[in-house]
């Protein structure tokens, strides 16, 4: 199975790799997946006073599609409001990266990571939690 150029680019030159300070109130952290399942994503957002995501970082243990999905997700997150970020749908990642059917779960995981980071941010700041996590299995 051949991967799309976009996927390969995100895999080889991942954007926004790194770690934000978890204890910072402006930072929301999402850690999803499990080592036994072969993928773990940690996605972090940093939200400014206006409620815009001014920075996003990720680290992912997983296959190429998981890494590319999270890299692309951080790119999309930057500059978005929290509400806009919540509207990111995994199928948009699937389309953009041309993920094959067996890799759709990687995009689902990236969507979960976004939601989980936002939830963490909202809880930390005493905001109303507007995130509805997907139910899997």
């Amino acid at each position: 199975m051949a991967y799309s150029d976009k996927l390969l680019d995100h895999f080889k030159n991942p954007r926004n790799v790194g770690t934000l300070d978890k204890s910072d109130k402006k930072v929301g952290t999402g850690l999803v997946g499990a080592p036994e399942c072969g993928d773990v994503m940690r996605l972090q957002i940093q939200v400014n006073e206006e409620g815009l995501i001014e920075d996003a970082k990720f680290k992912t243990f997983g296959c190429g599609s998981a890494i590319a999905s999270s890299s692309l997700a951080t790119e999309w997150l930057k500059g978005k409001s929290v509400d806009e970020a919540l509207a990111i749908d995994n199928m948009a990642l699937v389309e953009e990266l041309a993920l094959p059917p067996v890799k759709i779960h990687c995009s689902v995981l990236a969507e979960d990571a976004i939601k989980s980071a936002i939830k963490d941010y909202q809880e930390k700041n005493g905001l109303e939690v507007t995130v509805v996590m997907n139910e899997h299995h």
Binding site: P14, V17, T19, L31, V32, G33, A34, P35, E36, C37, V40, M41, R42, K59, T60, F61, I67, H105, V108, L109, D112, H136, H137
Partner: peptide, 26 residues
């Protein structure tokens, strides 16, 4: 390259016990 990208490698390096984390199996 892959370890630079790996959150669990980072945790391992920080001495975090991965067994102690409640993973969200999917």
């Amino acid at each position: 390259h892959m370890r630079d990208l790996s959150p669990i490698w980072e945790m391992y390096k920080e001495g975090i016990d991965l067994e102690s984390i409640e993973w969200s199996a999917h």
